[in-house]
């Protein structure tokens, strides 16, 4: 079904991605019930290992694991031994000793989840909850799920769905995972950013690229705005937040260029007034809150598919 770990959106085949989305659909029904709890992962231990602050992603994974009855422990960098200089390896060995069946890792260094999965420090499954400027596969999955609900009635893949991703692509793990996953699912992706915020070699990515937001808005089925950090000014990526917002921000004038059915997405947290104006953020077509809700269900699906069967170490012989 899936591999042992979920590290990159690139690891998912079309069938695997659809399996996750279909499983999410079934699990979404649980969220609508009065008893929002399943016994599926009873006795499994899931560790949230967060080296970066991200309350919303941490809570989303925590809730997903709890709804599946897993035991969840959270290991945050702040106030823990990690902030006292303990290495990733020693932290991993500690978690292994505690019997973690899965480690959900958020880390500021690109590739840290891959390292955790392959260095031989732990046996459990590793879920990438965002690594550096590399990937954030569950965000891409929840975005794909949201897109499928709005453009495909919640069925099948995303063939021909036109998605515009706008902003700091260079530093965005959300953009990387989305480009990979959405292309796997058949969507038509266009990246929009100033040239300084596009990675070298982006012309060979499986998507289109534009420097001009107004040009691509009318044809979009969905516009995904990326968070832009004002600190990027220090790296001379753009002259001022005002200029950025004028050229690449989504405001009411630009929203009017969009087709009436097109939706506005944002991985959050939003910088209102920078990449997205308040009236757009609060518009009916902005599905930011729904994305959060879908995030819990997608993460339940991932946890079920990674932990819901016999592990490769052979629980099956019990």
């Amino acid at each position: 079904m899936l591999g042992k770990h979920l590290l990159s959106a690139a690891d998912l085949t079309r069938d695997q991605a659809l399996l996750i989305l279909d499983t999410t659909s079934e699990l979404a029904a649980v969220t609508d019930r009065s008893v929002k709890k399943l016994p599926t992962l009873r006795g499994r231990t899931v560790v949230n290992l967060f080296f970066e602050d991200s309350t919303r992603t941490r809570l989303s994974f925590e809730l997903a694991a709890k709804r599946l009855s897993a035991d969840v422990i959270t290991f945050s960098a702040k106030g823990s031994s990690v902030s006292k200089g303990e290495s990733l390896k020693d932290t991993a060995l500690t978690l292994e000793a505690m019997g973690a069946d899965a480690v959900i890792i958020r880390h500021g260094a690109s590739g840290a989840p891959e390292r955790l999965a392959t260095a031989g420090w732990i046996d459990g499954a590793v879920l990438n909850a965002g690594d550096g400027t590399h990937e954030h596969p569950t965000q891409a999955l929840l975005d794909a799920y949201t897109l499928r609900r709005h453009t495909r009635d919640g069925q099948g893949d995303l063939s021909g769905v036109r998605v515009v991703i706008v902003g700091d692509v260079l530093h965005s793990r959300v953009a990387r995972s989305n480009v990979l996953l959405l292309q796997t699912l058949g969507a038509d992706v266009t990246l929009v950013a100033p040239p300084t915020l596009l990675p070298v070699g982006v012309e060979n990515w499986p998507c289109k690229v534009s420097y001009h937001l107004d040009d691509v808005l009318p044809d979009a089925d969905a516009v995904m705005m990326l968070r832009v950090q004002a600190e990027r000014m220090a790296g001379a990526y753009f002259p001022s937040t005002l200029e950025y917002s004028r050229m690449y921000g989504l405001d009411a004038r630009r929203m009017a260029l969009m087709s009436p059915d097109a939706i506005v997405m944002h991985p959050g947290p939003m910088n209102r007034g920078l990449e997205i104006s308040a009236d757009v953020a609060d518009a009916d077509r902005a599905v930011v809150v729904e994305q959060v809700a879908n995030g819990v269900n997608v993460r339940m699906a991932c946890l079920y598919l990674l932990l819901g069967g016999a592990s490769s170490e052979g629980d099956g012989s019990q």
């Binding site: 690109s110 590739g111 690594d131 400027t133 590399h134 260079l170 990387r176 070298v200 070699g201 990515w205």
Partner: peptide, 18 residues
């Protein structure tokens, strides 16, 4: 900088060494 700057550094999200 973490690795050669090119298409791969862009994909891996590692800061490039041009």
């Amino acid at each position: 900088a973490q690795m050669n700057e090119g298409e791969l550094s862009g994909r891996l999200g590692l800061a490039g060494w041009p």
